[in-house]
Design a protein around this nucleic acid. Structure first.
Lengths: 212, 212
DNA sequence: CGGTGAACTTACCGGCGAGTAGGGTTACCT
DNA sequence: AGGTAACCCTACTCGCCGGTAAGTTCACCG
């Protein structure tokens, strides 16, 4: 009875691998498990099983569960930041920038790998290391948006950053809501609506806001 | 050596209490602990200790840790919904409505009791019961806002709800960001800015959105 | 004053899951 | 072939924490 297994990815129990390859596979599998179950519900046994190896092997690659999780978290955060950065840099027209940023969030949330669950729906936010990273990630996103706002509206830095944080929240929440699929609105339409909402909100900001 | 204790709330170890009063105290103390540590890090022993009683007493009032948590969660969600509903009903001018809704979120997030941490920063979102409640809460908020949007802009229901979900995210995220206190902007100013952002975003929505 | 029940306590159980000890097996190089 | 190092497994420890059994003290009533 020879081993029957998917040769490409996942199981293949019994197949040895060079260190780097194994590590890469473990990261992939671990992300799937964490994304599916969250940090607490996911067991190291689960991850090992899903990867077709045993627990000690896992610990030869990552010193602890937390470290493994942080590695994945960093990866996901980096993806978001890069995508958003590229969106902002993709044009110099601010209206288009908003549209691109919106698309970036929708992309991120719609990614098959589900990295956004690690960033936006983590269940380990009380761990200082996690909290720090997530806060920093939000701040970095806000800073990116903030620069555009400040340049466009001439608002003070603190004010622009507050607005930017709100914008980030708008994009993130809308994208997540849409990805739940409870809506009839198609992706094209959804991004257009949200992008329009954001752009109208920002674009008409005068250099000094009006009285009550 | 007579017992020295704050007579009103908290410790007072050794003091017996009628059932209802005890239950109320436990809810109070438990919320503090959950808010401070999150669900997972908080132990039933911690809660019992903080309340000045022993664990079995806790279990005479709540059948399980989860039940206790859900009770608190429901409470917090209810608070938010009521406040938001009142905000929307407080006026018939939609611009004022946005301002009132913004203020409601800032109130909620700034509440000393910290109930918003249970709703917006829960670390038990993988528990179906929790997920359900939080999703329902979001949906209810979105529905409230959506009705106003639909009435004002004549958008279809799905579209209005998507925008409303985004608006809710905007308010929530901005309020949370502001409450972290990293900003120089005062509360008055912050609510005005965010409210303006939201209102501009929505108000100028035409009945049928323009082409690209 | 004796009894009855509710409030409360100490001290424990049992399971779960992160992390580890120690030994077996395969690939590769000389 | 034979040695060696890396890869991998079975089987365990151990601390933590939700939940409980059984016994104790207080308040109140006839």
């Amino acid at each position: 009875m020879t081993a029957s297994a998917s040769p490409i990815r996942g199981g293949t129990r019994g197949s040895r691998m060079p260190r780097d390859e194994r590590r890469a596979q473990l990261l992939l599998v671990a992300r799937e498990v964490f994304v599916a179950s969250g940090y607490h519900a996911a067991g190291m046994d689960d991850i090992a099983d899903a990867a077709g190896i045993s627990k000690p092997v896992l610990y030869q690659h990552f010193p602890s569960k937390l470290d493994l999780y942080l590695a994945l978290l960093d990866e996901a955060i980096d993806t978001l930041n890069v995508e958003l950065e590229r969106a902002v840099a993709s044009t110099s027209d601010n209206k288009q920038r908003v549209a691109a940023a919106t698309a970036a969030y929708f992309d991120f949330v719609n990614d098959r790998l589900g990295g956004f669950r690690l960033v936006f729906e983590s269940d380990l936010t009380n761990e200082p290391a996690v909290r720090l990273r997530i806060d920093e990630a939000s701040d970095r996103c806000a800073a990116l948006i903030s620069r555009v706002i400040a340049q466009d509206t001439g608002l003070k830095d603190g004010e622009a950053t507050l607005l930017a944080a709100g914008m980030a929240g708008l994009l993130q929440t809308a994208a997540r809501y849409w990805s739940r699929g409870d809506t009839q609105v198609g992706r094209e339409e959804a991004t257009r609506l949200i992008s329009a909402l954001g752009w109208r909100g920002i674009s008409s900001f005068p250099l000094s806001h009006p009285p009550a």
